[in-house]
């Protein structure tokens, strides 16, 4: 039996945890809370190199939060995240991010090319405008997602699927080794969905690791090599063939985890 310790003790200990240095993403004992209400509990996970990983779980399971916590976009209550063995801060250059499409105002005064060029901003120093080669890279990425003809179109005049492709192109110009994509398949047409899948496979062939928050349970086995079933905690994670089972899905979606939700509520109320 391990002796009881104060919370401070516990936090201190995490700094000494050994992470898997070869893993594109290794998460150790991460807990995330919004206003003290835990939305992710004790996440332990190491993503395999060069695989397409689907993150699957019901609404409110913390899928987006998982990605955001890995990218330091929301504070972690405890735990640590390593990208190829180093902190996210040191590894920003090798990480690409596709936020949810709804997270931005598409009426913003910008063209598709403007948005894609933003993907290069990370490597341009402060106060220096993007150069010609940045624009060329952006144009190239737009062509890759089949949006070359729309480069100069105002983003609000694009369809939902086209907007999503613009976001993907922006991630492509980041030329990262690990990609985090938040629901890239949400609300897109069939053509875009096919284009995204092709793109994901291309990325995999080039040795990139892609973590994708995904909603459509039917397509999971077809699209992803690895799956991470999430409902506030990791229910199961591993190769799709062995982990993506009826039983595990039942656990994730079956609504038998009410106690967990209520415990989270209890913690929120107490604070």
């Amino acid at each position: 039996m391990s002796p009881s310790r104060s919370p401070d003790h516990r936090r201190f200990e995490h700094d000494q945890v050994h992470h898997d240095d070869d893993s594109p993403l290794s998460i150790h004992d991460m807990t995330v809370a919004y206003h003290r209400k835990p939305v992710l509990w004790d996440i332990d996970y190491a993503a395999p190199q060069g695989k397409l990983v689907g993150i699957v779980g019901p609404n409110g399971a913390g899928k987006s939060t998982l990605i955001k916590a890995c990218l330091d976009l929301v504070p972690r209550a405890s735990g640590s995240v390593r990208i190829y063995g180093k902190s996210y801060k040191e590894q920003r250059r090798v990480v690409g991010y596709v936020p949810q499409r709804e997270s931005v105002d598409w009426d913003f005064p910008a063209s598709a090319l403007d948005v894609v060029t933003m993907g290069r901003y990370g490597r341009i120093p402060w106060c220096i405008p993007p150069r010609k080669n940045d624009k060329e890279a952006a144009l190239h990425a737009l062509n890759q997602v089949g949006m070359g003809d729309y480069a100069f179109r105002q983003i609000s005049k694009l369809s939902g699927g086209q907007q999503q492709r613009v976001f993907l192109a922006r991630a492509l110009v980041q030329d990262a080794r690990v990609y985090f994509m938040d629901e890239p398949f949400a609300g897109v047409d069939a053509a875009t969905e096919a284009a995204i899948v092709t793109l994901l496979r291309e990325l995999r062939e080039r040795g990139r690791t892609v973590l994708v928050v995904h909603h459509d349970l039917q397509t999971v086995p077809e699209y992803f090599d690895e799956v991470l079933l999430l409902n506030m905690r990791i229910v199961a994670a591993g190769p799709t063939s062995s982990v993506y089972t009826e039983e595990n899905l039942q656990k994730t979606y079956g609504g038998r985890l009410t106690l967990l939700t209520e415990a989270a509520e209890a913690i929120a109320r107490s604070g």
Partner: peptide
Amino acid sequence: THFDIPLDHLHEPAERI
């Protein structure tokens, strides 16, 4: 019962909750 958690990771969450 519900999650795929190694034994040595069970104590701390319970300690907290």
